[in-house]
Design a protein around this nucleic acid. Structure first.
Length: 401
RNA sequence: GUGAGAUUAGCUCAGCUGGUUAGAGCACUGGUUUGUGGUGCCGGGGGUCGCGGGUUCGAAUCCCGUAUCUCACCCCA
C-alpha cells in the first residue's frame, strides 16, 4: 500500500467541513478590511526565500523542499507565504504604481521538519499582506483583524507584542549584544552559542533556564530603540489600549524570519501543546526593496490553519435536503424523475434500489436528510408521493407533479 | 537532526510468563410475521497481528533492523 509521505495529511470529511468553514468566514472578515484574494505558485526559485526569509533561518537553512527541476533551475516548495506575494507585488510593478495594496491568501506550505502536535511537513496558512501604509494605525488594524478572526471562532489566546526596531537602531544594538554575549559564551547552551553566530537576538527565545539567568543583564532592544521606532511602538500600544486589546509586551519575542522590523506580534494559545503560536506577524518595511522593488512599507500575518482548526467546533449540522426511494421496482423510474426535479433547488440523495420503507428511512437518516420521500404501490396508483419530515416526525402525501 | 513511547478488524482496544481455527465493543452490511428512521432482535463480511530478518519444534507474544504515528527538544504558523 502506498501511504502519504511523512507529515503530510489528507483532508477528508469531517475535517474538510472545518476547513471550508474557516476559509469562508475568515475570508469574509478580511474582505471587510479591504483585503483581496491573491494566489501565488507553490513552487518558487530558491533564491527568493534565501533573500527574503534569510539563509540563517532554520526554515531556509535546513527545512526547505529544494531540488533542481528538469530545466536545471534551483527551485523549492514555498515554506511560507509572504515572499511569494512580495515577489508578485514587485514583478507586477505594484510598487511603481504606488498606493495601498492589501492581499490575502491561503494554501499549503512545506517545511521538512520532524512532525509533532501542531506541526506538519505540509501545512496550511491563511495570511494577509498590506503594502504601502507606514502608519502605526495599519499595525493596529492588522492586529484587530487577527483578533476578530480568533474571536469569531471562539479561540482562547493571549497576544504578545514587541518591536524589533529598524536598521538604525538594530545594527548598533546587535553589535552591543554580541559584545555582551562574548563575555558569557562559555556558559551558554550549545544552541545559544550557535544562535550567537547566526541570529544573536534569538538567544532571548531560549528556554534553557541557565541561559535566561545569564541573559538577565543583557542589553534589550526595546530599551535601545531609536526615536522613530520607539514612537511608532508607543503609538501602536496607545491605540490597542484604547481599543481594549489585552496584550503583553514580550521583549523576548523574536520572529523567525529575517525580514521583520518594528512591530512583531504573536497570538499564542495554551490549548495547542508545545507549538503554541496560532498566528504571527509583523512589519517588514525593507523586504520589497530586498527583492528589487521600490522601498514600500508593509505588514502582514499568517494563521496556522491546522492549529486553529484543532481548537474550533463547527456548529452541528442540521438535517437538510431530501432522500428519495422506491418501495417497488416499478416506482424506481418515477422516483428518479422526481429526484432530478427536486435537485434544482435542494440537496437530494437518491436510492436506485427497491427497499422496504424501514430500510429507506434508515438510509435517509444516515444520509442526514431532512425529508424522506418514497413512492410505493399506493402512491403509484394515486399519482402521489409520500414524504416524512425526519426532524419534525410529521408525514404527508403530496400529488406527484 | 536528537530523545521517549507506540504500531493487532474501518475505529477504540483485549490477547497472562511464546503453544491448536487471533477476540470484544462500535462501525459497515443483510434479514427481522403486513409500508415508519435515529433507540429492539437475529445473522454476515472483514485481520498474511506495520514491514524485514533472527531465536525456537512452534512467534501477535522474545531479540535486531526499518518505516510510520504520537509527544518533546530544536524551530515556527
Amino acid at each position: 500500500m502506498i501511504t502519504a509521505l511523512r507529515g503530510m495529511k489528507d483532508i477528508l470529511p469531517p475535517q474538510n467541513q472545518k476547513f471550508e468553514y474557516f476559509i469562508k468566514n475568515t475570508s469574509k472578515i478580511v474582505k471587510k478590511y479591504g483585503f483581496e484574494f491573491i494566489e501565488t505558485p507553490l513552487l518558487e526559485e530558491t533564491s527568493l526565500f534565501k533573500r527574503s526569509v534569510g539563509e540563517s533561518s532554520d526554515i531556509v537553512g535546513k527545512e526547505m523542499y529544494q531540488f533542481k527541476d528538469k530545466g536545471g533551475n534551483d527551485v523549492c516548495l514555498r515554506p511560507e507565504g509572504t515572499a511569494g506575494v512580495v515577489r508578485a507585488f514587485v514583478e507586477k510593478k505594484l510598487d511603481r504604481i504606488g498606493g495601498i495594496n492589501r492581499f490575502f491568501y491561503y494554501g499549503p506550505m512545506f517545511r521538512y521538519e520532524r512532525p509533532q502536535k501542531g506541526r506538519f511537513r505540509q501545512f496550511h496558512q491563511f495570511g494577509v499582506e498590506s503594502f504601502g501604509v507606514e502608519s502605526h494605525y495599519e499595525d493596529a488594524n492588522i492586529i484587530l483583524m487577527t483578533k476578530e478572526i480568533l474571536d469569531f471562532f471562539g479561540i482562547n489566546y493571549s497576544l504578545k507584542l514587541n518591536s524589533l526596531g529598524c536598521e538604525d537602531c538594530m545594527t548598533p544594538y546587535r553589535k552591543e549584544l554580541i559584545t555582551f554575549l562574548d563575555t558569557i559564551t562559555d556558559d551558554l547552551c550549545p544552541d545559544c552559542q550557535r544562535r550567537k553566530e547566526t541570529n544573536p537576538i534569538r538567544v532571548f527565545d531560549c528556554k534553557n533556564e541557565q541561559c535566561q539567568a545569564l541573559l538577565n543583564p543583557a542589553p534589550r532592544l526595546n530599551q535601545n530603540l531609536c526615536e522613530k521606532c520607539d514612537t511608532h511602538f508607543n503609538a501602536l500600544r496607545t491605540i490597542l489600549d484604547k481599543q481594549n486589546v489585552k496584550y503583553e509586551v514580550d521583549p523576548n519575542l523574536v520572529r523567525g524570519l529575517d525580514y521583520y522590523n518594528q512591530t512583531a506580534f504573536e497570538f499564542i494559545s495554551g490549548d495547542l501543546g508545545a507549538q503554541n503560536a496560532v498566528a504571527g506577524g509583523g512589519r517588514y518595511d525593507k523586504l520589497v526593496s530586498f527583492l528589487d522593488g521600490k522601498e514600500t512599507p508593509a505588514i502582514g500575518f499568517a494563521i496556522g490553519i491546522e492549529r486553529l482548526l484543532e481548537m474550533i467546533e463547527i456548529p452541528q449540522e442540521q438535517r437538510k435536503g431530501y432522500y428519495f426511494g422506491a418501495l417497488c421496482p416499478q416506482a424506481i423510474g418515477i422516483v428518479f424523475d422526481a429526484a432530478s426535479k427536486q435537485r434544482k433547488t435542494d440537496i437530494v440523495t437518491l436510492s436506485y434500489e427497491k427497499k422496504s420503507l424501514k430500510a429507506h428511512l434508515k438510509a435517509a437518516d444516515k444520509a442526514g436528510a431532512r425529508y424522506c420521500a418514497v413512492i410505493g404501490e399506493d402512491e403509484l396508483e394515486n399519482q402521489t408521493i409520500w414524504i416524512k419530515d425526519l426532524q419534525e416526525k410529521t408525514e404527508f402525501t403530496a400529488p406527484l407533479s
